[in-house]
Design a protein around this nucleic acid. Structure first.
Lengths: 142, 142
DNA sequence: GTTCTTGCAAAACTTTTGCAGCAGT
DNA sequence: ACTGCTGCAAAAGTTTTGCAAGAAC
C-alpha cells in the first residue's frame, strides 16, 4: 500500500466508511513507517483530535486489518504493532533501539508451497521476524 | 532441550536454583510440547501445587528465558506462549484450531548471513511463523 | 547464613465491550 | 434514512512489582 488515496479506495471498496478518525490513523501509519503500537498512534493523533478514544484506535486498526490494509505484528514487547506495507516483506527488529527495518529476501520465497507439500498445511500468512542488532547499534558501545 | 536432567543441568550451571515450582513448570513444558501460555501452565500445575501464583509462573518463565532454556512466542492471540525446544525450528500456527506445529526447512538457512552482509544487521534470533490451516482443519467443514 | 525465590495483593498495561448519540453514505 | 462509527467508561485479560516469609545452596 503506497498512497493515501489507494488505501481509501480499498477501504471504500470493502464498505468501510471514511471518518476523520480513520483518516488520521491512516495518515499516521502511512507517514510513519515505524510499525507503531496502538498507543503510539493514539498519542500522536490526540493533539489534533483531542477526543479520539483508545477504543476507537483499536476498533479502527481491527477494521483495517479485516479489510486487508494493515497487519498486526509483535516485536517481542507486549504490545501489538501495526504495519501498512502490504507488499510481501519481512522484519528485522533491533533489540537495542527497537527499530524495525523492513527487508525482503528471495530465499524465503517458495516456503508456502514447500509446507503445503510436506505438511499439508495451507499457508495464509508468513510472519518472518529476525531479531538482533542493527548497524547503528552495533557500532555504539552497549 | 530434550530431557529434564539436561534442562536442570543448564539451569544450575547458570546459577538458577531448582525449586518445586520450577520443576513443575519445566516438567509441564517438557511433556506438553504445545507451546502453552503462562496461564495454561498455571492452571495445569495448580492442582498439584495449589498455592503457586501466576506471578511465580511469569517470574520463572522469565528466568528460564534468561538462562536460554525457553523462548517466548506469539501465536497471534494476545498472550505469550513458551517453547522449550531450543533446536532451531519454526512454527506453523493453525488459525482455526490454534495448534502449533514445529517445522524446519533448510530453505531458511543462511538467512542470517545474508542479512549481515546486506543490512549490517547482527542476527541473534530468527522467529519464523507461518499462519494458515493445518491438514486436519482443511478437511473439516468450516 | 546468605542469597534467591515464593506468594500474595495491588498496580500497570493492553485490549475488548456495551450502548447512547452522531455521522458517513 | 439507514447503518455503521464514535466516545466514554467499565470490564476483561495479561504481565509486572513490592515486600515479608520461606527455601535452596
Amino acid at each position: 500500500m503506497r498512497s493515501y488515496d489507494e488505501a481509501v479506495g480499498l477501504l471504500k471498496g470493502r464498505g468501510v466508511r471514511i471518518t476523520p478518525q480513520r483518516t488520521a490513523i491512516l495518515q499516521y501509519l502511512l507517514s510513519h513507517r515505524t510499525h507503531p503500537t496502538a498507543d503510539e498512534i493514539y498519542r500522536a493523533i490526540q493533539p489534533s483530535y483531542p477526543n479520539v478514544s483508545v477504543a476507537t484506535v483499536y476498533n479502527n486498526l481491527r477494521a483495517f486489518q479485516e479489510a486487508g490494509l494493515v497487519r498486526e505484528l509483535t516485536a517481542g514487547d507486549h504490545a501489538s504493532r501495526f504495519d501498512v506495507n502490504m507488499v510481501p516483506h519481512h522484519h528485522a527488529v533491533c533489540d537495542r533501539c527497537g527499530k524495525i527495518v523492513d527487508f525482503y529476501h528471495p530465499q524465503l520465497d517458495g516456503l508456502a508451497e514447500a509446507m503445503e507439500e510436506e505438511l499439508g498445511f495451507a499457508v495464509t500468512e508468513q510472519r518472518i521476524e529476525v531479531h538482533g542488532l542493527c548497524r547503528e547499534c552495533r557500532q555504539r558501545p552497549s
